[in-house]
């Protein structure tokens, strides 16, 4: 029953992010960079839920984003976000205490890593993503935007990950 609730909550979060990604994000680019909410949710899942959750949510976020993309190979974002979600989750299991600022920095770093990972994969599949002249702008601005937006998404991720059978106080990690 708990697993079903988790799946439903995470589905709600991912679909909401997808709708915002499709409807709102393209309308408000910063320096020509569209905020990547799907990557942000994948990283947020890793931060809040650990490597397994990061990988699963990352896979679905990436796959949905792949379906949306006008061009390019399907599955590249899915692979990149699975790996980055798992990696961030694994990193977080080693961290004893995280404050708000450091969680923002972790999300920003995770976003930059995810974008670079996608760019490397894209290049391997002939997409010219790594040689894109705007790559560093996309990586840097995208990471900063995700860092800034992380408190909202991490709050939503905590809601999605919350197990009703667990105590409300959830240890030392404060994101």
């Amino acid at each position: 029953m708990i697993e079903v609730v988790l799946v439903v909550r995470w589905s709600v979060l991912v679909i909401t992010a997808l709708v915002v990604q499709v409807g709102v994000a393209p309308e408000f680019p910063v320096l020509g960079v569209v905020v990547n909410l799907m990557l942000l949710v994948a990283v947020g899942a890793g931060v809040v839920g650990g490597p397994e959750r990061g990988a699963v949510v990352g896979f679905f976020c990436g796959f949905l984003l792949d379906l949306l993309r006008g061009s390019g190979a399907l599955g590249l974002s899915a692979l990149a976000y699975t790996l980055v979600g798992a990696a961030i989750g694994a990193t977080m299991t080693q961290v004893l205490q995280v404050r708000r600022w450091s969680s923002m920095a972790i999300v920003a770093a995770g976003s930059a890593t995810g974008t670079m990972m996608f760019a490397v994969e894209g290049q391997l599949f002939g997409e010219r993503t790594l040689t894109n002249p705007r790559l560093w702008t996309i990586v840097t601005v995208g990471a900063l935007l995700n860092g800034v937006l992380s408190p909202i998404v991490l709050r939503a991720a905590r809601w999605a990950e919350r197990r009703d059978d667990e105590p409300k106080v959830l240890g030392a990690i404060d994101v």
């Binding site: 569209v34 993309r69 061009s71 390019g72 760019a119």
Partner: peptide, 12 residues
Amino acid sequence: TGNFTSFDDNTA
């Protein structure tokens, strides 16, 4: 619509 991601600037 605008591009959904930053890597899609050569498509519409």
